[in-house]
Design a protein around this nucleic acid. Sequence first.
DNA 1: TAATATTGTTTGTACATACAAATATAGACA
DNA 2: TGTCTATATTTGTATGTACAAACAATATTA
Lengths: 144, 144
Amino acid sequence: MLDTYLKECLYFTANRLGRVLTKMAEDEFASCGLAPNGAFLLMAVYEQEGITQKKLGEMLHLQPSTVTRLIEKMIGRSLIYNQVEGRLSRIYSTDKGKALQPQIQQCWDTLRDRYGAILGIEDGDRLTLELYKASDRLEGKIQE
Amino acid sequence: MLDTYLKECLYFTANRLGRVLTKMAEDEFASCGLAPNGAFLLMAVYEQEGITQKKLGEMLHLQPSTVTRLIEKMIGRSLIYNQVEGRLSRIYSTDKGKALQPQIQQCWDTLRDRYGAILGIEDGDRLTLELYKASDRLEGKIQE
DNA sequence: TAATATTGTTTGTACATACAAATATAGACA
DNA sequence: TGTCTATATTTGTATGTACAAACAATATTA
């Protein structure tokens, strides 16, 4: 009976899957000394040097305070630096940070292959996109 | 480009969806003063009074230490009590804990309706089951 | 221009979760 | 019986995330 509730509860299943994949992802990214979200943040910075924290939060769907904390850590590891401009804090990657780019991409690919090998690449990707859309709808990002 | 990576990353989408639903669930369960996983734990105890912590962890897919901490809190609120039996810690619900049963069930139903209203009841349930199965496979609980 | 509102960031605090090591008990077996 | 191993739980510590309040800078408007 509880089991039925668990299988029917999106709160539970989404978080459980999150935990399972977090473990896989952390494991994968340990090789470049980054947390998975740190890697995403760095990719966002590669794409737009000088991006603001607010924008980073929007892209990664994290709260501003969470972004502040993540950035603190990465500055501490000299992967990025920030330049305050009025009330904005703009983020740039350091040389050390830039050097990680190829490894990071490699890690994402490997991670995708790893769960793809179990779920099937197609099914894994389809599920992933479906989750993305579900979040968008639940957050009201897409009408109806 | 980053956006593409995010939409294609199951680690990211599962955790994002988890965060969205955690907020909804916490909001819903605030009315009975429980965290969502506390509610699940209590349901597991209703179902089997004297259940061990190990078993609880298996059902909720949480690590033993996490279960210990969750139980500490709920004992603190007098919703459950434990009885040590050799190396086992068996968990029972108190009268105060038992009294919550109807409210808890109500909350789950309301929560399901809430996201069901956005995703569609059918689609929501289908997605939920799919996530459950994906976790099982990724954890090697199901061959092939 | 002064007062007020808005916006972006940080700080203090709290929670859920986990890992690794420690502890305690039970079981196996020599 | 005594020792070794396996099992269940707890403890210490760390991480990721968030909320609310504080702070700082900009924009608005009276």
